[in-house]
Design a protein around this nucleic acid. Structure first.
Lengths: 148, 148
DNA sequence: GTTAGACTTTAAGTCAACTTCAAACAATTA
DNA sequence: TAATTGTTTGAAGTTGACTTAAAGTCTAAC
């Protein structure tokens, strides 16, 4: 039972409010619309309005975007979505491959964090004398078994 | 005891080889040099050459870069590095703040991965009938206690 | 009813981080 | 020695993702 079926009202959000709700700006939303990523409705007088479904969609889209998907890749997903349930397998495959790539990227980021931590430790060791003046960072990494 | 002290030879790498070693391109290396991120040496005839120390530096720089640091921010770090050990505290502070920001960003990425996983599960559930036709993704997330 | 602020459009501008180009010089290979 | 490949420079071009501008229309508050 959704809010809709409960009271028959559907919230309409104008672009400014919707922008605030999603953390985007109005120009960005018009840009996304031009790129086909979101399709707001129009009131009689020509003003855009967005609904709660659009809020959910944009939130999910922003998650996809933060995995590294480009506007062009998102566009493909949106097109499939518009074609209906028949494209669910395609969408599923796309999301799985996005996940694959994303997890690899996160592994790299984890490694970068390790190196960053090591460098901070190494500097700290230099500062408090825990690490000898002559020990370079490369050797330090090697001793920690942290390649690169 | 370093390789240097062991045999007195120091490897010299020309820009193409160095590019391959670091995963960058020659133009990118020239661009980084112009921005002050790396200072190769020059042989008598004017050709750039890089050393193992430069390899280590670029590798570290790329880790910093993948935490989200911009060329401009890296430039600041490089300047401090050139000023000698007196700036170690500054560099340490900078790296710690970079780490702070980076860890927050990784938390966000973790969350995006969660949502992506949920969406994949949801689609899979739709496909194999495990999730009812009428259950939307937003409700599914709510049931999983995964906000947004 | 007037006015400030939000909205509409199309088009041009911005930004970071490269990438490509052109023309001349250096090094390697046949 | 000739040809090919690599390097040099400065400057211009590219890309993705917005952002800003300009000029007009709509809405809400007073």
């Amino acid at each position: 039972m959704t809010t809709d079926t409960m009271n028959g009202t559907e919230q309409h959000y104008r672009i400014g409010d919707f922008a605030e709700m999603t953390g985007l700006t109005s120009p960005t939303l018009r840009y996304y619309e031009k790129e086909g990523l979101v399709k707001p409705h129009r009131s009689e007088n020509g003003l855009r309005y967005y609904t709660d479904a659009d809020v959910n969609w944009i939130k999910f889209l922003l998650h996809l975007k933060s995995t590294g998907m480009s506007i062009d890749q998102l566009k493909k997903y949106v097109q499939w979505r518009a074609e209906g349930d028949a494209t669910i397998p395609k969408r599923l495959d796309l999301l799985k491959s996005v996940r694959e790539d994303f997890m690899k990227k996160m592994d790299d980021l984890d490694h970068s964090l390790t190196i960053l931590n090591d460098k901070i430790d190494w500097y700290s060791g230099k500062t408090d004398g825990r690490i000898s003046d002559s020990e370079g960072f490369a050797e330090y990494l090697e001793n920690m078994n942290h390649a690169e």
